[in-house]
Lab assay of single mutants.
Amino acid sequence: EPSQADLDALLSAVRDNRLSIEQAVTLLTPSSGGGSGGGSMDAKEILTRFKDGGLDRAAAQALLAGRTPA
Rank of each mutant, 00 (worst) to 15 (best):
residue 60 A to V: 08
residue 53 G to A: 03
residue 37 G to Y: 14
residue 27 L to V: 03
residue 42 D to C: 09
residue 18 R to Y: 08
residue 45 E to L: 04
residue 66 G to S: 06
residue 68 T to F: 13
residue 36 S to N: 09
residue 37 G to K: 07
residue 34 G to L: 15
residue 9 A to Q: 08
residue 8 D to S: 07
residue 15 R to Q: 11
residue 22 E to F: 04
residue 17 N to D: 08
residue 56 D to A: 05
residue 23 Q to S: 09
residue 11 L to P: 00
residue 67 R to F: 14
residue 10 L to C: 02
residue 8 D to Y: 07
residue 46 I to T: 03
residue 11 L to V: 02
residue 29 T to K: 09
residue 24 A to D: 00
residue 16 D to V: 03
residue 68 T to S: 09
residue 7 L to M: 07
residue 3 S to Q: 11
residue 2 P to M: 15
residue 17 N to R: 05
residue 21 I to P: 03
residue 11 L to D: 01
residue 25 V to W: 04
residue 2 P to E: 10
residue 34 G to Q: 07
residue 67 R to C: 11
residue 2 P to I: 15
residue 44 K to D: 05
residue 27 L to F: 13
residue 13 A to N: 04
residue 40 S to L: 13
residue 19 L to P: 00
residue 36 S to K: 05
residue 32 S to F: 11
residue 4 Q to T: 15
residue 34 G to R: 03
residue 3 S to D: 09
residue 23 Q to H: 10
residue 58 A to H: 08
residue 21 I to M: 03
residue 18 R to S: 10
residue 33 G to C: 14
residue 62 A to C: 09
residue 6 D to C: 13
residue 44 K to Y: 13
residue 55 L to V: 04
residue 15 R to G: 08
residue 49 R to W: 06
residue 28 L to Y: 03
residue 34 G to N: 10
residue 32 S to V: 06
residue 12 S to V: 09
residue 70 A to K: 02
residue 39 G to M: 13
residue 17 N to M: 04
residue 25 V to L: 13
residue 46 I to V: 10
residue 19 L to C: 05
residue 3 S to A: 08
residue 4 Q to V: 12
residue 14 V to T: 01
residue 26 T to Q: 13
residue 49 R to L: 15
residue 50 F to D: 01
residue 52 D to S: 11
residue 46 I to M: 02
residue 55 L to E: 01
residue 46 I to G: 00
residue 6 D to S: 14
residue 13 A to S: 05
residue 26 T to V: 11
residue 50 F to N: 00
residue 64 L to K: 01
residue 69 P to S: 08
residue 31 S to K: 05
residue 70 A to L: 04
residue 1 E to D: 14
residue 62 A to Q: 12
residue 62 A to N: 06
residue 68 T to L: 12
residue 68 T to E: 10
residue 52 D to G: 07
residue 60 A to D: 00
residue 38 G to W: 13
residue 50 F to V: 02
residue 20 S to L: 03
residue 10 L to R: 00
residue 7 L to D: 02
residue 67 R to M: 13
